[in-house]
C-alpha cells in the first residue's frame, strides 16, 4: 500500500479533468442554450481535487516544506506538475465562484481555460513518469493510460452525476459515447503498449528489484482490459435503451470502471522496474 496516496492523487485529478471535459463538451453540443456547468459538477470536481491534494501531501515525507517543491520548475517535471495542478485547482475555484454568482457572459472562456489547464496537468503528470531508468513508465503507455482514465472514468462519472441532476439516464448522444469509448481505446492501447515495452526490455529487467515482479502482472493485463470492456459495455447498455434499469446499469458500470482503475493504477506503480541497482 506504499503507493496508495499516489494512486488516489493521480486517479482523482484525472477523473476531475474528465468530468470537466465531458461537461464542457456537453454544453458545447447542447441545443437548449445552457452555458454554465451545473454547480454540482463543479463542486464534485473541486472535492476530487481537494482530496487529491490532501493525498499528495500525505505522500510527502515533510509536507510542511511543500512550497519548496516548485523551486525547480526550469528542470523538474515534478515542479511543473505541482504548478499546473495548482493552476487547474485555482481555475476550478474561479469557475465555481462565477457559476455560483450566476456570471454567464464569457463563461465559456473560463471553462475552456480550465479545461486547457486540466489537459496541461495530465500532460505534466505523464512527463513526471518519463524516467530513463524505468522503461515501463518511460513510454507512450503512460500518457495514454492517464488520458484514458480522464476520458473513461471522467466520462462515466459525469454520466452518474447527470443521473443525480436530471434523475434519469440521459438519452444516447455523441457525448456519452465519445469520451468513455475514446478513453477505452486509450486504455487498451496503453495496456498493449506496456506489454510491448516489457517484452522488448525483458533482458534489462533481470537485475531490477524483487518487489517489481512484472512478469507476475503480465497475465493480469488481459483481465484488466476485459474489465474495462465490461464496464464500457454496461455503460452502453445503460444509455442505449438495452435495459429497463438504466440507472442500475450505469452505477454498476461506474463501480466496475472505478475498481478496475484502482487496480490498474496499483499495477502501474508496481511495474516500477528500474534499469540499474
Amino acid at each position: 500500500m506504499h503507493n496508495l496516496s499516489l494512486v488516489i492523487f493521480t486517479l482523482l485529478i484525472q477523473t476531475s479533468v474528465g468530468i470537466l471535459g465531458t461537461a464542457i463538451f456537453n454544453i458545447w453540443r447542447n441545443k437548449n442554450g445552457m452555458v454554465q456547468i451545473p454547480l454540482i459538477i463543479l463542486s464534485t470536481c473541486l472535492g476530487l481535487i481537494a482530496l487529491a491534494l490532501i493525498s499528495a501531501m500525505a505522500h510527502l515525507g515533510n509536507p510542511r516544506k511543500a512550497p519548496h517543491a516548485i523551486l525547480n520548475i526550469t528542470h523538474s517535471w515534478l515542479s511543473r506538475e505541482i504548478v499546473s495542478i495548482n493552476l487547474f485547482a485555482i481555475s476550478i475555484v474561479l469557475l465555481w465562484g462565477l457559476t455560483f454568482i450566476g456570471f454567464q457572459k464569457g463563461a465559456f472562456v473560463f471553462q475552456i481555460t480550465s479545461l486547457i489547464l486540466g489537459i496541461l496537468t495530465i500532460s505534466t503528470m505523464s512527463q513526471v513518469y518519463y524516467l530513463r531508468a524505468v522503461p515501463v513508465w518511460n513510454s507512450i503507455a503512460t500518457p495514454m493510460d492517464f488520458f484514458g482514465t480522464a476520458l473513461l472514468a471522467g466520462g462515466i462519472a459525469w454520466a452518474v452525476l447527470n443521473l443525480f441532476i436530471s434523475d434519469r439516464v440521459s438519452t444516447p448522444g455523441l457525448t456519452f459515447f465519445m469520451f468513455p469509448y475514446l478513453g477505452l481505446c486509450c486504455k487498451i492501447f496503453a495496456i498493449s503498449s506496456t506489454i510491448s515495452v516489457q517484452k522488448r526490455s525483458k533482458n534489462l529487467f533481470w537485475y531490477a528489484s524483487l518487489r517489481a515482479k512484472i512478469n507476475a502482472h503480465t497475465s493480469t493485463y488481459a483481465v484488466r482490459a476485459g474489465l474495462y470492456i465490461i464496464g464500457a459495455a454496461l455503460f452502453a447498455a445503460a444509455n442505449m435503451g438495452m435495459t429497463d434499469q438504466p440507472a442500475f446499469f450505469l452505477l454498476i458500470s461506474f463501480a466496475v470502471i472505478c475498481l478496475t482503475e484502482i487496480w490498474n493504477r496499483f499495477c502501474f506503480y508496481d511495474s516500477f522496474c528500474r534499469l540499474g541497482l
Binding site: H59, L60, G61, N62, P63, K65, A66, H68, A69, L71, S76, L78, V128, L131, R132, A133, V134, F272, R274, L275, G276, L277
Partner: peptide, 25 residues
C-alpha cells in the same frame, strides 16, 4: 529544502538517494 517526495529515488539508477523515514527526507 527536501520535501521527501522520493522522486530522486525513482530517478537514480544507482539507488543512491535513500529515504530517511524518521525525518521524512
Amino acid at each position: 529544502k527536501c520535501v521527501g517526495c522520493r522522486y530522486c529515488e525513482w530517478a537514480c539508477p544507482y539507488s543512491a538517494p535513500q529515504f530517511d523515514r524518521s525525518n521524512g527526507i
